[in-house]
Design a protein around this nucleic acid. Structure first.
Length: 470
DNA sequence: CTATGGCACGGATT
DNA sequence: AATCCGTGCCATAG
């Protein structure tokens, strides 16, 4: 509401427009590279030194005040999220901690390695003693994300009871990628299964297979497994399919067996979020804090000395410098424009989808990019660019793609999941379709089948047997 | 005969 | 213009 007046003042040149568009579609990571190269090649641009808020230690814009701590409490409705651009070079998941709280951290590397990535997730939950143990555990991961030491050794090394090390391992295992820090593929699978079962239906047979028939499972001995558990071979195959589609034994890789994992997928997992949403003071009653990440320890501006210097420069230099100056000012404007758009976007989105963020997928309101573009009075493609390839970290530390805010069917799928999870006798797709219609979601029978498939839920006739039998 | 999955079409979305 | 998504129709499995 404050920093936005420039917006329509100056006629937008095509260059301006084009560059803003480009910047908008960049993720925080790419943005940082862009800024750095611009900074290196243009003397007129400078990065002003960081200032931190004395209260919460956030990085501040050059003249601004802290948007969180200085927020006027009287006109504050807890519904309205606090949205602001947050320059931060640290990227730690909670703004109220400083880099000093984290051991062994180098300067912010953008593409984290696995241990760093995990440590950042778990650090906020741990005391400094525990953090040391966590860091130690994480330095003993192999490339598959599995532990190379035994917990007992670690406990001995730190002179701690085994149980306390186990507790820390458990926290690590529940971080992304789920199952990391397990001592075996089997353990990793079990953790993933447990996590998965919180949100979806999982066949009861799956756990038994992993727990008791790991050998046969990895050798695809369906007949053998069917015999062991007294079920049909097709059932085993279905469950194995479920396992191979939803679980992965080597958390460090993203999928089964193959080492040739595509680079982009790895990037997807380890990427820093572009937006971080959290509760103020970590209290769910407080308003949401939405930080649009600006991956720098300071703020960009045009070097005021450069302006002066230009006057005294010799003629031949003058021209070159002038163009530098123009480029720099264009760049700064584009950055502002980008941030401005991101802010408006998130403001609206978080305001609308608050219950999705706080109460889960069931409460996602179906919303399209087109609608949003109309409300914000920008072109549809602007929204598309701003949304694509970006990720958001929710208060529960999950990192999800920003595009999931526009998932047309996520809420229906979630309700469907719950219905199936709480069914007493397995319901057929057409029955499910009817029930959904009663709840206000009218979807075709065929669509129910598709949603089921998306959620990895088995068809009715295979559902009951495996879970009842357990 | 019923429940599901495959294919393909048309409209919406990007 | 390209892509995604919900749906209807039909073949197939149980």
């Amino acid at each position: 509401m404050f920093q936005l007046h420039y917006q329509t003042i100056r006629p937008l040149t095509t260059a301006h427009l084009a560059q803003t568009m480009t910047l908008l579609s960049l993720t925080s990571e790419e943005l940082r590279q862009q800024i750095e190269s611009e900074l290196a090649s243009n003397p007129a641009l400078e990065l002003v030194e960081e200032r931190r808020c004395p209260m919460c230690h956030r990085l501040l814009p050059p003249r601004g005040v802290c948007p969180v701590c200085s927020r006027p409490s009287n006109e504050a409705s807890p519904e309205e999220p606090i949205v602001f651009v947050s320059p931060r070079d640290d990227f730690y998941t909670h703004g109220d901690r400083t880099a000093d709280d984290y051991p062994d951290e180098g300067v912010s590397t953008i593409a984290d390695d696995l241990p760093t990535y995990v440590l950042r997730q778990v650090a906020p939950e741990l005391g400094s003693e525990q953090r040391k143990i966590a860091a130690y555990l994480l330095t003993h991961l192999d490339e598959d994300g599995l532990l190379t030491t035994s917990l007992i050794e670690v406990a001995r090394y730190f002179h701690k009871p085994l149980s306390s090390v186990e507790a820390i391992q458990k926290i690590i295992q529940h971080a992304e990628p789920v199952g990391v820090g397990s001592t075996s593929p089997q353990e990793a699978l079990l953790v993933q299964l447990e996590v998965l079962s919180e949100s979806r239906f999982v066949p009861g047979l799956a756990e038994k297979l992993i727990r008791e028939a790991m050998d046969q499972l990895s050798r695809h001995q369906y007949a053998e497994m069917a015999r062991m558990f007294g079920v049909s071979q097709t059932q085993v195959q279905q469950v194995v399919r479920f396992i191979s589609e939803n679980l992965y034994p080597f958390p460090g890789r993203s999928h089964w067996g193959d080492v040739r994992q595509p680079a982009n997928e790895a990037l997807e997992v380890y990427r820093q979020p572009d937006v971080i949403i959290s509760y103020m003071d970590n209290d769910p009653k407080n308003p949401l804090i939405v930080e649009v990440i600006l991956p720098l320890a300071g703020t960009l501006r045009i070097n005021p000395l450069f302006r002066g210097a230009i006057q005294q420069a010799s003629d031949e230099k003058k021209d070159a410098w002038k163009s530098d100056l123009e480029r720099a000012s264009l760049f700064v404007k584009c950055m502002q424009q980008r941030n401005h758009t991101m802010l408006r976007l998130m403001q609206r989105l978080v305001g609308l989808q608050r219950s999705y963020i706080t109460h889960g997928e069931k409460h996602l309101i179906p919303f399209t990019r087109a609608q949003l573009s109309r409300e914000l009075e920008v072109h549809e493609s602007t929204i598309s660019r701003a949304v694509s390839n970006k990720t958001v970290q929710l208060p529960n530390r999950r990192i999800i793609p920003l595009s999931s805010f526009f998932d047309r069917s996520l809420n229906v799928r979630t309700v469907l999941r719950e219905m199936i999870a709480s069914e007493s006798t397995p319901l057929s797709d057409s029955e499910l379709a009817e029930m959904l219609a009663e709840k206000g979601f009218s979807v075709a029978r065929r669509t129910v089948a598709k949603y089921r498939a998306m959620e990895g839920i088995l068809p009715a006739h295979l559902r009951d047997i495996s879970s009842v039998r357990a």
